[in-house]
Amino acid sequence: TFELKGKVGKVVKIAEDHYLVESEGDKWIAYSDEKLSLGDRVMVVDVDGLKLKVKRIP
């Protein structure tokens, strides 16, 4: 299986209740415990079905 946990991506869209993150050339629906901005670099900390939980990284 394709393992996304630990992968790095970038926030490419902000929606009302989720983010769109591009990682490894694909776009994924993501959510975070912190507020993210367009262009933020993020790391995948968990995968919930087809949704990614991400956190901001420097």
Results as ranks from 00 to 15, higher is better:
55 K>A: 13
45 V>T: 11
16 E>D: 12
35 K>E: 08
18 H>K: 10
33 D>N: 06
21 V>E: 00
47 V>A: 04
39 G>Y: 13
40 D>W: 06
35 K>G: 10
10 K>S: 10
46 D>V: 04
58 P>T: 11
31 Y>A: 11
16 E>R: 07
39 G>H: 12
29 I>G: 09
10 K>Y: 07
29 I>T: 06
38 L>A: 11
15 A>I: 12
3 E>W: 03
57 I>N: 10
9 G>P: 01
31 Y>I: 12
23 S>A: 15
42 V>T: 04
22 E>H: 11
24 E>I: 04
8 V>F: 04
47 V>T: 04
20 L>I: 11
42 V>I: 14
37 S>T: 10
11 V>R: 00
58 P>K: 04
34 E>R: 06
25 G>I: 03
6 G>L: 01
46 D>Y: 03
52 L>H: 02
19 Y>S: 03
17 D>Y: 11
10 K>Q: 10
6 G>N: 02
15 A>W: 13
13 K>N: 09
26 D>V: 11
19 Y>K: 00
31 Y>M: 14
45 V>I: 06
41 R>F: 11
15 A>C: 10
15 A>V: 12
34 E>V: 07
55 K>N: 14
33 D>M: 09
22 E>F: 08
19 Y>W: 06
58 P>H: 11
46 D>I: 04
49 G>Q: 08
47 V>L: 13
32 S>T: 05
20 L>G: 06
23 S>Q: 06
33 D>W: 13
51 K>W: 12
52 L>R: 02
10 K>I: 08
51 K>I: 12
9 G>S: 02
13 K>M: 13
21 V>F: 15
16 E>G: 10
50 L>Y: 14
18 H>Q: 10
53 K>D: 09
48 D>A: 04
25 G>H: 05
41 R>I: 12
28 W>P: 00
41 R>K: 12
57 I>G: 04
29 I>D: 11
9 G>E: 01
31 Y>S: 09
27 K>P: 04
45 V>A: 05
57 I>E: 14
7 K>Q: 04
50 L>R: 08
46 D>R: 02
47 V>E: 05
19 Y>P: 00
30 A>D: 00
36 L>A: 02
52 L>A: 07
37 S>E: 13
57 I>T: 12
22 E>S: 05
33 D>V: 07
30 A>Y: 00
37 S>H: 05
6 G>I: 01
14 I>T: 07
7 K>H: 04
54 V>Q: 00
1 T>D: 15
35 K>F: 09
24 E>P: 03
50 L>N: 09
11 V>N: 00
42 V>N: 00
27 K>I: 11
37 S>F: 08
14 I>Y: 08
13 K>I: 08
30 A>R: 00
47 V>M: 09
44 V>A: 03
30 A>E: 00
26 D>Q: 13
8 V>Q: 08
11 V>C: 07
23 S>R: 03
30 A>Q: 01
4 L>E: 15
49 G>K: 09
42 V>E: 00
50 L>T: 07
37 S>L: 11
13 K>D: 13
56 R>S: 13
35 K>M: 08
39 G>S: 11
58 P>F: 09
48 D>K: 05
7 K>C: 12
14 I>F: 09
20 L>H: 14
37 S>D: 10
50 L>A: 09
38 L>Y: 07
7 K>G: 04
3 E>Q: 02
53 K>M: 10
35 K>C: 12
5 K>W: 15
16 E>A: 11
23 S>T: 14
9 G>I: 02
2 F>N: 15
36 L>G: 00
42 V>Q: 00
6 G>Y: 02
45 V>E: 14
20 L>S: 08
44 V>I: 14
35 K>V: 08
54 V>D: 00
9 G>D: 00
31 Y>L: 13
51 K>C: 13
32 S>E: 00
30 A>M: 08
56 R>V: 09
58 P>M: 07
37 S>I: 10
44 V>H: 01
15 A>S: 09
14 I>S: 10
55 K>Q: 14
11 V>L: 05
18 H>V: 11
39 G>D: 14
1 T>S: 15
18 H>A: 09
7 K>I: 02
15 A>K: 09
33 D>A: 07
11 V>F: 00
38 L>V: 08
51 K>S: 13
25 G>Q: 05
46 D>P: 01
19 Y>L: 11
14 I>P: 02
27 K>L: 10
35 K>R: 10
38 L>D: 05
21 V>T: 03
36 L>E: 00
44 V>D: 01
1 T>H: 15
38 L>G: 04
15 A>Q: 09
23 S>M: 15
49 G>M: 09
8 V>E: 14
35 K>H: 10
15 A>N: 10
47 V>F: 07
39 G>E: 12
51 K>M: 13
47 V>C: 12
51 K>V: 13
15 A>H: 11
8 V>N: 05
12 V>Q: 06
5 K>R: 03
16 E>K: 11
18 H>R: 12
18 H>S: 12
15 A>M: 09
56 R>I: 13
6 G>P: 00
36 L>Q: 02
45 V>Y: 07
8 V>I: 14
45 V>N: 04
2 F>T: 15
43 M>N: 04
3 E>M: 01
14 I>K: 06
45 V>P: 01
48 D>L: 11
48 D>C: 14
56 R>P: 14
49 G>A: 06
25 G>D: 06
46 D>H: 04
11 V>D: 00
40 D>M: 06
49 G>L: 05
25 G>K: 05
25 G>E: 07
29 I>F: 13
57 I>P: 05
48 D>I: 11
13 K>H: 06
31 Y>F: 12
1 T>A: 15
50 L>C: 12
27 K>C: 10
20 L>C: 10
16 E>Y: 08
47 V>N: 03
34 E>I: 04
47 V>R: 03
1 T>W: 15
1 T>P: 15
45 V>F: 05
26 D>P: 04
51 K>P: 03
26 D>F: 13
51 K>A: 13
9 G>Q: 02
4 L>Q: 15
3 E>I: 01
37 S>V: 12
4 L>M: 14
11 V>P: 00
50 L>E: 05
54 V>W: 02
7 K>P: 01
47 V>I: 08
2 F>I: 15
5 K>N: 15
40 D>H: 05
58 P>Q: 10
34 E>L: 05
12 V>N: 05
